[in-house]
């Protein structure tokens, strides 16, 4: 069981590393899905089977499919990957790398203070999650529903504009190229 955790953690890190470094967007997306699946396994090992299922269904499933659709609509070819390669000169990694190293150092310091507490012994089942969600967190659920509604309306509105009401000729060209 331990080995599962460390193995999937290693896979998650490696896949995420690939996501941010490859130049082809579709490949990056596939790596991202691998990373999410690895994290789902981590959830399972942590005793959160419900979270693991959600991670696969919603994250690796629904949200990633959304990305795939957009990628299809954009229809980025080899030229895009080449340009991407051009943007990725080695110098660009230094600043973010330093910041990330600082962040990791700080977090490591915090974790080191906490000591190595092992975690609990029982899995948290879907039933418990459901009871918590629709008990004390009900207001949060309502807010989340409002947020999703706003997202839906926003995406719908933005999508409608693309149909060429406001942008006019530019629109047409965009459509032909796409």
């Amino acid at each position: 069981m331990e080995i599962t955790f460390y193995l999937s953690a290693a896979i998650a890190i490696a896949a995420t590393l690939m996501v941010i470094t490859v130049s082809n967007a579709t490949h990056a997306l596939l790596y991202l899905i691998v990373s999410l699946l690895a994290v789902a396994i981590v959830f399972f090992v942590l005793g959160a089977p419900f979270a693991a299922a959600l991670e696969i269904i919603i994250y690796a499933g629904a949200i990633m499919v959304l990305f795939v659709f957009v990628m299809m609509m954009l229809n980025l070819g080899k030229a895009a990957a080449a340009r991407e390669q051009g943007w990725l000169n080695p110098g660009i990694w230094t600043g973010p790398g330093v910041l990330a190293a600082l962040l990791l150092a700080e977090l490591a310091y915090i974790f080191a203070q906490g000591g190595d507490t092992p975690w609990g012994t029982a899995a948290v089942t879907a039933k418990e999650v459901g009871i918590a969600l629709f008990g004390p967190y009900l207001l949060g659920v309502e807010l989340a529903s409002l947020l999703l509604l706003a997202g839906l309306v926003g995406a719908c509105h933005l999508g409608w504009n693309q149909a060429g009401i406001e942008t006019g000729h530019e629109e047409e060209r965009g459509h032909e190229n796409g």
């Binding site: 910041l99 990330a100 190595d116």
Partner: peptide, 22 residues
Amino acid sequence: IAAIPMHHGLVLAAILFALGMI
């Protein structure tokens, strides 16, 4: 379960977070 300390999971989260930031 008892074999994996809590902060290993947190370190994994931190690494993923930092990679996302990069």
